[in-house]
Deep mutational scan, measured.
Amino acid sequence: MEVRTIKVFTTVDNINLHTQVVDMSMTYGQQFGPTYLDGADVTKIKPHNSHEGKTFYVLPNDDTLRVEAFEYYHTTDPSFLGRYMSALNHTKKWKYPQVNGLTSIKWADNNCYLATALLTLQQIELKFNPPALQDAYYRARAGEAANFCALILAYCNKTVGELGDVRETMSYLFQHANLDSCKRVLNVVCKTCGQQQTTLKGVEAVMYMGTLSYEQFKKGVQIPCTCGKQATKYLVQQESPFVMMSAPPAQYELKHGTFTCASEYTGNYQCGHYKHITSKETLYCIDGALLTKSSEYKGPITDVFYKENSYTTTIK
């Protein structure tokens, strides 16, 4: 009895394709271990004539594949690729409408935090270190965002349907971005203890939790000093293409032309909904596939993004 075979390709990165001759009487799992086709788990399936010449994702289970996976995804987590594939199996079914010149995501599976993050990423200057993220990001900007969303979920250790947080998501993504040249110098002034300067680099240099107003941050924000008295913390120097200011959701007025974009969060910790506000020729609110415009805006804002380049204080 002759062994019926077909020729397929296996890959971990969709760049390096490895030619395989597979036995049609055995499952993919018996031949390769966990195997995925377009995100779908085909591990328990036997090869079919229609699979001839198709590319299958496999887990990096030998040295060659491990090197290829690390170079593309910059992670050695053995569960990463499987999590990416199972997320992709959902995100490829989502709709990605162009809204006001940006790629958004039609609401499904509690994905409003991903839509808000995706919209924000198209408006701030950011370059990702893992080629996987950078490639998928370019495709997302062009309207094909399924891979990018699935990668975000995998890097953030999230599953489809789980509630997510924009600030946490951005923080994970910033860790995989090139923020080497970003720098922030802060000064804390206390009447009792004097003053202390701190220099922050990388992710810490672009994120701040405690106030939404970048102007206020430049002037000074009140913080408790270690001595128990009130101290003032203010920005001395900022070198970065953008800054992200966050605070627990509270009524906040966004003035046209003073910011790049913002995240609105309605609801409580267990259950809520994100919308995205962007400042173009007027203010726009993007909620999944829905767009509304207004000249002014007041609502429960939790993150505001500002364009920056270089700032030095005039406070002496």
Rank of each mutant, 00 (worst) to 15 (best):
Q196N: 10
N16W: 06
M170K: 00
T91H: 04
G143R: 03
Y96R: 02
L151Y: 05
T312A: 10
T313Q: 15
M209P: 01
F9D: 09
Y28Q: 03
P130M: 03
K201G: 08
C227K: 01
G164M: 01
P131F: 03
S50G: 12
H276P: 01
A247R: 02
S213G: 04
G272L: 00
S246P: 00
P97H: 12
E308A: 07
W107C: 03
A150C: 01
F32P: 05
F305V: 08
P249D: 02
C271F: 13
N61Y: 14
L102C: 03
Y284S: 10
L17Q: 15
K158N: 02
Q238G: 01
S104M: 06
K183A: 05
P248F: 13
V58L: 09
L81P: 09
G299C: 01
Y269L: 15
C225G: 00
N89P: 07
M209Y: 15
A108H: 04
S295L: 11
L173P: 01
T199V: 14
L121S: 07
L119H: 00
G33E: 06
T226G: 14
T11S: 10
Q134D: 08
I223C: 15
V221C: 07
S279D: 15
V243R: 01
V304F: 02
R83L: 09
D287N: 05
T55P: 08
L102I: 09
N147R: 10
Q98C: 09
V243C: 06
L17G: 06
K201H: 11
Q123M: 05
L114V: 08
L88H: 05
L133G: 04
M24F: 09
F242A: 00
H273A: 02
Q175P: 11
Y265Q: 00
A115H: 01
A69C: 14
S50T: 13
N111I: 03
E204M: 10
V3H: 14
L88W: 10
P130K: 04
I152E: 03
Q30P: 07
L102P: 01
E52P: 08
V243L: 10
D62E: 11
G82T: 11
C190K: 01
Y234D: 02
R141V: 11
N129L: 07
H256F: 11
T278I: 13
L65D: 07
M244F: 02
Q31T: 12
Q175A: 11
T5G: 09
A154I: 05
L173H: 02
T211C: 11
Q196A: 12
A150T: 03
P224K: 13
F70W: 09
G228P: 01
A40P: 08
I286L: 07
